Amino acid sequence: MGLTSNKVLALAVLAALLLFVATIWWWPRLARGGVRAVAGRVGLLLATQLALFAVIALTANRAFLFYGSWADLFGQKQELGVVVDHSADRSHVRLVAKQQPGVPGGSRPAKAGQIHKVVIAGKQSRIDTPAYVYLPPEYFQAEHRRSTFPAVVVLTGYPGTAENLLKGLRYPKTAFELAAAGRMRPTILVMLRPTVAPPRDTECVDVPGGPQTETFFAKDVPQAVSGTYRVGTAARNWGFIGNSTGGYCALKIALHHPERFAAGAGLSAHYKAAEDPTTGDLFQGDDQERKRADLLWSLDHVPQGKTSFLVTSSRQGEHNLGETLEFIKRVKAPARVSSIMLDSGGHNYNTWRREIPPALEWLSGRLRP
């Protein structure tokens, strides 16, 4: 039974109820003095409280998907090892499994689309990481067999799991519904987490002597996906979106690589690379690279390309409001900037689920097949 399954939550609720009933039933017998009676009272109270805490924790985790599995909760590796051939002619996207998107149409790809679980192998960065690729129904329809599609790279926050983008944030389902309503072009979604060298948070930086994360997302991912699926290689074919750390990465990659991405959307993004125990020394004393990783500095000192940016915040509940307004102020032509400003909303899944549909619609309006 999975960590987020209904059965696990139901068992936790049942255990809490049984322990509550047992406490009421046994309390008169344990009310007398003596070590055994006191130990019994302490044991029942502790067990009941732990059961209640488990119910609350499981409910919160189902809502926000802090952990996608038991292995994730206990810090174990989530993915089985995948043998990747590093010869010169290898494919840079290895298919691991196929699954349904959980939308009307069921198992028929031409009606519901399909999700591919893959491993993307970076040709230049030498980074291999798991991802999910959502293919819309039109991808499988006979009349679109020769059609190409726009693609959007989607990132979680840190640490995050790619499964959160499917379950908690519901990107494939949202894209399906928007396309069905005519509010979005059928679009391929490439869903990953920014943690390509776990457990290190690399902030989408090319670390000297370390993971070349910026190269992986800016160059390797578009090249690998375009070489496997029907996606073009021009900037107008590609967008980037993410939340929190993933939002920072989306804005950073779109800002520094306008030749590859036409649009970048940062949901609750921060605007400067974090430097803490989770990141380690990202810049190895290179102050110029540290400045370049500061998006507000880059807007003033790096030529801005024909890139569209979308930033989000809320007037109450988010800590990035001031920096978001400053980012908007510093974007200059030929770049363009749009924003979503909520009256209130914290740094959480509920807020991002309110922003994802308009953000995907905005991205679709700036990309072309």
Rank of each mutant, 00 (worst) to 15 (best):
G68L: 01
I127N: 01
P101Q: 09
Y139D: 05
H86N: 09
G43W: 06
Q49S: 12
Q76H: 09
P109Y: 07
K77R: 15
A142E: 15
A47Q: 03
T129H: 03
L19N: 06
P130I: 02
A31K: 09
V21R: 08
R41Y: 06
L44T: 02
A51E: 01
R29P: 00
Q114A: 13
L80Q: 10
D89R: 06
F20G: 15
A22Y: 06
F53R: 02
P28R: 09
G33R: 15
A31D: 13
L44R: 05
V55G: 04
A31E: 10
L45K: 05
A54P: 03
T23Q: 13
V118N: 00
P136T: 11
V55L: 07
L135M: 11
P104T: 06
R41H: 08
P109R: 10
L95T: 03
V35C: 06
K77L: 06
I24Y: 09
V21K: 07
V119A: 04
E143N: 14
H116S: 07
R94G: 03
V55K: 10
H92M: 09
F64C: 02
G33C: 04
A31W: 08
G40S: 07
V93Q: 13
R126Y: 07
F53Q: 03
S91F: 04
W70S: 00
Q99W: 04
L65I: 13
P109N: 11
S91L: 06
L80W: 03
F74M: 06
R108T: 10
G33T: 12
Q114N: 02
T23E: 15
A142G: 07
A63P: 03
G33F: 09
Y139R: 10
L30A: 09
A121K: 00
G105C: 08
L95F: 11
T59C: 08
Q124F: 11
K117S: 14
V83R: 14
D72V: 01
L50V: 12
L30W: 05
Q49V: 15
S91Y: 03
L46Q: 00
D85R: 13
F53E: 03
Q114S: 08
V119M: 14
A121F: 01
G34E: 06
G75Y: 01
E79H: 11
A57T: 08
V93W: 05
L95K: 09
R126K: 14
W25L: 14
I115G: 00
I120W: 00
W70C: 01
V55W: 05
Q99Y: 03
D89Y: 04
G106V: 03
P28Q: 07
V82K: 04
G34M: 05
V35K: 10
Q76P: 01
S91Q: 12
A60C: 04
T59K: 10
V93F: 03
A88T: 05
P101M: 05
T59M: 10
H144A: 14
